[in-house]
């Protein structure tokens, strides 16, 4: 086998998001290394643990395929959680949740419109929003943590359907919906066009501006949903919730093979990225490795995946030594 055919066949394998190979390797490794890893309820645990970052990552993937990014998701998590816990007493649970979700979508809309109309890079727009929305959280909560007085709220976070935790189901259902959206609808396909060649998309009559706004609303929705599900797990919210979540989310999405430049990526890849992080955390925890090591391993894997991806996808012979 010559090196070039090796290259092409490697590239063909890469059609499966490569993170799934790492995920499988991790699962195999921990199956042997950690005693309780292979239990069914451990897997549902992993799903619950990863659902917060996982939900945000679903929205982030779409925004990143567009060639944008959203750094404000961590702050939106806190805002939505605070609103949906803090407003329960006045409004009741469902309306309060609706307010929480609405706040995330409204902020997503705002981010999207600013990115569209001003032409300022999404990185900068949402960096500003990250700082500002945290201010909104403190303004609303007056720096207080809120506790849910209605046990139904926290019960939801602990509940199961047919033995599967509800939060895990929520995550999986939304993953399936988003996968379908990205592979089968014109909105999803247009996302690749907008990220891959924005001018071409615009010339082809795709309403690029509204398209991007819709995706910012999506990521806002998912960040808010993640905040709310997180607060149901705790039965409470704190104003510092979600700090650094934007970075963990981007890590998961990039691990899943979505390119920062836009135009490529997939929900399945993101699912793989999210699960890999979850399995690593869980498995190392079961092996009684201190949580700190997970951070190191995650960082190393992120860089290693990037490194391997670059080596595989680049065409050695055509490349200049720059």
């Amino acid at each position: 086998m010559t090196s070039s055919t090796l290259h092409t066949s490697l590239r063909r394998v890469m059609i499966v998001p490569p993170i799934w190979l790492i995920l499988i390797a991790c699962v195999v490794f921990f199956s042997f290394a950690a005693d309780n890893f292979l239990a069914l309820n451990n897997f549902t645990n992993i799903l619950i643990q990863t659902s917060t970052i996982g939900l945000i990552a679903l929205g982030m993937t779409v925004v990143m395929i567009n060639g944008n990014i959203d750094l404000s998701v961590g702050a939106v998590v806190a805002l939505a959680a605070s609103l949906s816990v803090g407003m329960q007493d006045q409004l009741g649970i469902l309306p309060a949740v609706a307010v929480g979700l609405g706040s995330g979508m409204a902020l997503g809309f705002l981010n999207g419109v600013i990115v569209w109309k001003t032409g300022v890079d999404a990185f900068i727009v949402t960096l500003g929003a990250m700082i500002g929305v945290r201010g909104l959280v403190f303004l609303y909560t007056q720096e207080q943590s809120f506790f849910s007085m209605n046990f139904a709220y926290a019960d939801f976070g602990m509940s199961s359907m047919a033995g599967v935790p509800t939060l895990a189901i929520v995550f999986l259902v939304f993953t399936a919906i988003m996968h379908w959206l990205m592979t089968s609808t014109s909105h999803g396909r247009n996302a690749y066009a907008v990220g891959g060649n924005r001018e071409a998309a615009q010339n082809a009559g795709i309403r690029v501006g509204w398209h991007m706004v819709a995706n910012f609303v999506l990521v806002g929705f998912f960040a808010a949903l993640a905040g709310i599900t997180l607060s149901t797990q705790m039965g409470a919210s704190t104003p510092n919730l979600g700090i650094n979540y934007e970075l963990w989310t981007i890590t998961a999405v990039v691990l899943g093979g979505t390119k920062l430049a836009g135009g490529s990526g997939s929900i399945l890849g993101t699912l793989g990225g999210v699960l890999t992080i979850g399995v690593l955390r869980n498995g190392m925890n079961l092996m009684q490795v201190p949580a700190f090591y997970v951070l190191v391993v995650m960082g190393v894997i992120l860089i290693a995946v990037l490194f391997v991806d670059q080596r595989v996808s680049r065409r050695e012979a055509e490349e200049l030594k720059l």
Binding site: Y192, I206, G263
Partner: peptide, 19 residues
């Protein structure tokens, strides 16, 4: 003005995919 990540067919019908 093509989108490299998409199929030939999607590029041909870019912006007006049959749905």
């Amino acid at each position: 003005s093509l989108v490299p990540e998409m199929t030939v067919a999607e590029n041909i019908f870019l912006g007006s995919l049959p749905t």
